[in-house]
Design a protein around this nucleic acid. Structure first.
Length: 750
RNA sequence: GGAAAGUUAGCUCAGCUGGGAGAGCAUUCGCUUGACGUGUGAAAGGUCGCAGGUUCGAGCCCUGUACUUUCCACCA
């Protein structure tokens, strides 16, 4: 892809340096009581057999059922409490049934005891405002060990936490005769038993969200387990504040909403994983008394009992724990290194919005906590590349595109250009091979234009011409590339890469290749070089200069092809990568020549339309007469002659102040500030001519109506800025002039 | 349940500070025009989702609404 990286600084989070940082951070946070070990509800993946953080749980909507089950009231024959559950197998972990204290229906049963079906246990009915009387039956089975909300309820009411599911999602001994069954197997068996006992009231279809592990897709099991957590409430404050007060800018700005949604609802971060791969938690347990010692290295003596045998905690850390430290762990921290001074804080983080919670936020709060300041001042979020149907690329769908395959077929530059073209920051993009093909075509265009220019340059050296030797077209293209430089730089600084590249693309293809190179051809041929060497030199110098500058502007988007051409074109230069980026220069601003060329282009376009309509063969040249009343317009046409003569298929051109002595059989076309006449038999076709003029008249009528409407609107005149009014007035008079001429032509023909 | 984004040409998408709707691809009709047919010239194609509002003026700002997508929450 052409990433310009210093590979000698390649880092991996398991490297010695990064590992050292991980140990330091863990110990420091533990000492500060910001890391703790506790028994809490965590998300458990029964397939990976590890805990996972909240951020790693993906919820997906699934069709399921609401099973209504009767729990008999102890001591009251025939009386039941009906609960509704989506997970009957957790019944064995129930330690209460809760109702809302305000719910009149159930006030009298609060405090009573229920018989837990299919067990020999009895559980109390409690009142808790967590219960929504409107939902389900208004009675909720409370399973503190296997549901996060029930866990909270259990804490409030000092309920026992009965774990009933094993790490592999089979039922444990607390499930009685169901022990050893898989959780779903148990569900079926239990339901069938309940039904047999007449305790299954009804089964209602119900769609609900089920949490799954983002890596393997397994339904996660909430479980109470002893795990390590990072206490987030204090840590997150400076990270939230930093974005609020502008120390860190998120682009596009809307990402701030997502960011604050997370920081405002932060929960403690479960960082321990029951995996082999990762940084092992630096906690050691005394084999004699169980004392926990957190240290970078294994302790030798237990501070509590003096024991000398220890067992290290087998758990590893969440992979994002080490990634969060990346901006400084890679620079030698905790040592105060030169690298750290130089490269921390960094400038811009470029990343996908899908890892804002996993990585971006965690880097920011880690930066504030350990370095005292944010790790970067700007985060630029890009979207995700999707398939041609807008679906996320995934292994299971097999719709992924291998970048290496794209590069093999079309080149890295083409892929790179594709990814930046026509895309606004943070927006997703669909992948189409056609887009890459279009990018490849542009690379080909740049390549061929360069080849042509180099061919024209030959072995001769070009010298910078005196200003007086530059022709209008030369000044015009210099003026354009100069303006382009300013504009695209502004876009780049605002991270509007798609807009910037579009401007460079348009300039190179349309202005430079389709106009300037075509115009310059007449001056760079072998004949022309001999006839007018100074003009040839000026054209060649301009070609080389503008191409070189355009290559620099294009380089960020197409690094390889620009480097190759640049070095061939400028053999004295070592690399485009270390060339300075162009800046706007006042001496390359030529408004008069821009005007001249705009007339030339308009004339050429008008001629093309005429000839196209009539299928005139390209070899056929013609004499042209341009009639313009204003002297400065005549001057412009005079000046631009060299630029348009060839492209307008003209043998010669006559520029006059008035339309006297124009041959009767001449075709005429009204252009801005002038009328163009081409006396040429094969061009004349009265019917077609009238058609064309009618069409032109229609267009002008519309424009006049629009312009008149604005200028007759007193409110517009009184409220719009003066320059807008002047601009509109100028347009109106131009249209009026053109209209008069078109009508005159029409009269003549009819 | 909360939030964000999208809705512009047949398709995929741009449109920067409100001031005559753009590109690429596709389509139609031409072209061995000095590098490029991966090219070149011309053309056709849009009520900017819908309804209000602000404004002299709205694709752009505001309100509402419909549909699509995504993120967050997870009510048992």
């Amino acid at each position: 892809m052409g990433s310009s990286a210093d590979w000698s600084r390649e880092r991996f989070t398991m490297d010695k340096g990064c590992s050292e940082a991980v140990l330091s951070v863990f110990c420091k946070l533990y000492e500060d009581k910001k890391i703790y070990k506790g028994s809490r509800i965590i998300n458990w993946c029964p397939v990976c057999r590890t805990s996972i953080s909240d951020a790693e749980v993906e919820y997906e909507e699934q069709d399921g059922f609401f099973w209504h089950i009767n729990y008999p009231v102890v001591g009251e024959e025939g009386r039941f409490v009906e609960i509704a559950t989506t997970r009957p197998e957790t019944l064995f972990g129930d330690t209460a049934v809760a109702v809302n204290p305000e719910d009149d229906r159930y006030k009298d049963i609060v405090g009573k005891t229920l018989k837990l079906p299919c067990t020999d246990r009895e559980i109390p009915v409690i009142a808790d405002s967590y219960v929504d009387p409107e939902f389900g039956t208004g009675c909720v089975k409370i399973t503190p060990a296997h549901d996060p909300n029930d866990f909270e309820v259990g804490k409030r009411h000092h309920l026992e936490e009965v774990v009933v599911i094993n790490d592999d999602a089979t039922m444990n001994e607390n499930a009685g005769k169901y022990a050893g069954m898989d959780r779903y197997e148990c569900r079926e068996a239990l339901l069938s038993d309940l039904k047999a006992q007449g305790l299954l009231v009804k089964t209602v279809p119900h769609t609900h969200n089920v949490g799954t592990h983002d890596r393997c897709g397994t339904t996660v099991e909430p479980m109470v387990k002893a795990q390590w957590f990072v206490k987030m409430d204090e840590l997150i404050k400076p990270a939230a504040e930093g974005v609020k007060n502008g120390e860190v800018t998120l682009l596009p700005k809307r990402m701030e909403k997502t960011y604050f949604n997370w920081t405002d609802n932060i929960r403690d971060w479960c960082i321990s994983r029951q995996l082999w791969w990762g940084h092992r938690i630096p906690a050691y347990y005394c084999d004699d008394c169980g004392e926990i010692v957190v240290a970078k290295e294994a302790p030798t003596v237990c501070p509590k009992c003096g024991g000398i045998h220890f067992t290290q905690d087998p758990d590893t850390l969440d992979t994002w724990f080490s990634s969060a430290l990346w901006p400084f762990s890679t620079m030698g921290w905790p040592k105060d290194t030169e690298d750290l001074k130089t490269f921390y804080p960094n400038d811009v983080l470029v990343t996908g919005y899908d890892i804002i919670f996993f990585w971006v936020i965690r880097m920011i709060f880690s930066g504030y906590e350990h370095m005292g300041r944010a790790p970067f001042h700007t985060v630029l979020f890009h979207g995700l590349v999707r398939d041609d149907q807008g679906r996320k690329m995934s292994k299971s769908l097999g719709n992924g595109i291998d970048p290496l395959e794209v590069i093999d077929k079309y080149g890295a530059d083409a892929l790179r250009l594709t990814l930046v073209t026509g895309n606004a920051p943070g927006n997703d993009m669909r992948f189409y091979w056609e887009k890459v093909e279009a990018s490849r075509n542009f690379a080909n265009k740049v390549w061929n234009a360069s080849r042509f220019i180099m061919m024209n340059l030959g072995d001769e050296t070009v010298t910078e011409p005196d200003a007086k030797d530059l022709r209008p077209a030369d000044k015009w293209i210099l003026s354009l590339v100069n303006a382009l430089t300013r504009e695209m730089t502004v876009n780049m600084e605002k991270f509007e890469l798609g807009v910037a590249v579009q401007k460079v693309y348009d300039f190179i293809w349309e202005e430079f290749c389709d106009w300037y190179i075509e115009i310059a051809k007449t001056r760079t041929s072998a004949d022309a070089k001999e006839k007018d060497p100074s003009s040839a030199n000026a054209a060649l110098w301009t070609l080389k200069t503008v191409l070189t500058q355009a290559l620099k502007l294009l380089h960020p988007f197409m690094p390889f092809i620009t480097e190759e051409i640049y070095c061939t074109l400028n053999p004295e230069e070592p690399s485009i990568m270390i060339a300075s980026f162009p800046e706007y220069r006042d001496d390359w601003n030529f408004p008069a020549e821009e005007r001249t060329l705009s007339y030339a282009k308009e004339l050429v376009k008008a001629v093309r339309v005429l000839r196209n309509e009539r299928n005139v063969p390209p070899q056929k040249r013609s004499h042209m007469i341009v009639v313009a009343e204003k002297e400065e317009v005549r001057t412009a046409f005079e000046e631009g002659k060299e630029a348009y003569l060839r492209l307008a298929f003209a043998s010669d051109v006559e520029i006059k102040a008035e339309a006297a002595g124009i041959p009767e059989d001449a075709v005429s076309v009204v252009i801005r500030d002038a009328v163009l006449y081409i006396p040429m038999k094969e061009l004349v076709d009265e019917k077609k001519e009238i058609e064309r003029l009618q069409k032109e008249k229609e267009r002008l009528t519309k424009e006049l109506a629009r312009s008149n409407g604005m200028l007759k609107n007193e409110k517009f005149l009184s409220k719009a800025p003066a320059e807008k009014i002047a601009e509109e007035k100028a347009k109106l008079s131009q249209y009026e002039e053109m209209m008069a001429k078109v009508e005159e032509q029409l009269n003549k023909l009819s």
